[in-house]
Design a binder for these strands. Structure first.
Lengths: 132, 132
DNA sequence: AATAAATACGACATATTTAATCGTATTTAA
DNA sequence: TTAAATACGATTAAATATGTCGTATTTATT
C-alpha cells in the first residue's frame, strides 16, 4: 500500500534530469532510458502523457525530444499524481457511490478523514519543491 | 497508487464495530463478516494478525471472539499500517539498499521528502482519532 | 466424554493491477 | 529519401492483492 508507481517514478527522474539542463535544451527518451536503466518504451509513454498534460513540450523528428513546459512551482504534487494516475484517494468509495455495501459500511467517515489529510498534504507540496 | 488494502479496510471496520460495544464484550468473526458482507476467512486472518500484534485480545472456544486490547489513542496510524502491511514508504529504496541503479538514481532525495511528509502525517494521526 | 462453535494458520487458487513489450504510424532534420 | 525521433493502441508478462480450502486447536455446553 502507498507505493509510488513506476510511471510516477520515471516521470520524476525525467523531470529532475531535465532540470539540470538549460531550459531550452531538449532531452530524448533514449538518453534518459540509457542513463538510468529504464525501459525506453515505457518511459516514452510516460513522457508522452506528460506532454499531453502540458507539463512537457515535445519536439518531433530527429534531434527532437522533450523540455519542461510548465511552471513546476505552480503544480501541486496532488495534481501531478492525478494527471498521471487518476483520482488520488485511499478508497474508491471516496469517488464512487455504487459500493454494494455502502449502507452497512461503518468506515466512510474514518476513510474520509485519512483521505482529506493525505490530499491536503499533497496539495501543499509543489513539484518544484520535490524535484529541485 | 495510495490505495488502502482490504486488510486495512476490514481491520478498521472491525475496530469501529467493537468500539460501539462495551469494552469487555466479545465479537465473533462471523458477526462482523455477516453484518458487513465481508469474506469470513479473510476477515479471520486479519483479526488473528491484530491479535498477534496485541491490538485485539482473542478468546477461543464457543462463545469466544475478540475484544479491543490496546489503547487506540497510543497507536499511530503509521504503526497500525505497518503492523498490518509492513514498512510504510512510497518506494522500497527507502528501506532497502540493494537497488541496482542506486548509483544512477537522481530521485532519492525527492522520494525521501515525500516519504518523510507521508510518514509524519501518519505518525501524528492516532487510531483512536480515526475510528472514533 | 462427546459435541459444537469458535479461533489459528499454512497452502493454494483466483482476480486485479502494474509493468513491459510489440507493432505500426507520424514527424522532420539531414 | 533516409534515419532518428515522438505517438499510441494492443497485447503479454509479472507482481500483488484477494479469496478459498483444509485441518488443527481450544473450550463452553451437554
Amino acid at each position: 500500500m502507498l507505493k509510488i508507481t513506476r510511471k510516477v517514478e520515471y516521470a520524476l527522474i525525467a523531470l529532475r534530469h531535465m532540470q539540470s539542463k538549460n531550459v531550452d535544451e531538449l532531452t530524448s527518451t533514449k538518453e534518459i532510458a540509457n542513463q538510468y536503466g529504464i525501459p525506453q518504451q515505457l518511459l516514452a509513454k510516460t513522457l508522452q502523457q506528460m506532454a499531453r498534460d502540458r507539463i512537457l513540450e515535445a519536439v518531433q523528428g530527429p534531434a527532437g525530444g522533450y523540455r519542461i513546459l510548465a511552471k513546476l512551482d505552480r503544480i501541486s504534487l496532488k495534481d501531478f499524481f492525478e494527471k498521471l494516475e487518476g483520482p488520488l484517494g485511499m478508497m474508491d468509495c471516496y469517488f464512487e457511490s455504487d459500493c454494494i455495501q455502502i449502507s452497512a459500511c461503518n468506515i466512510r467517515v474514518p476513510i474520509q478523514r485519512i483521505n482529506d489529510n493525505l490530499r491536503n498534504m499533497f496539495t501543499q507540496m509543489t513539484l518544484q519543491e520535490v524535484t529541485q
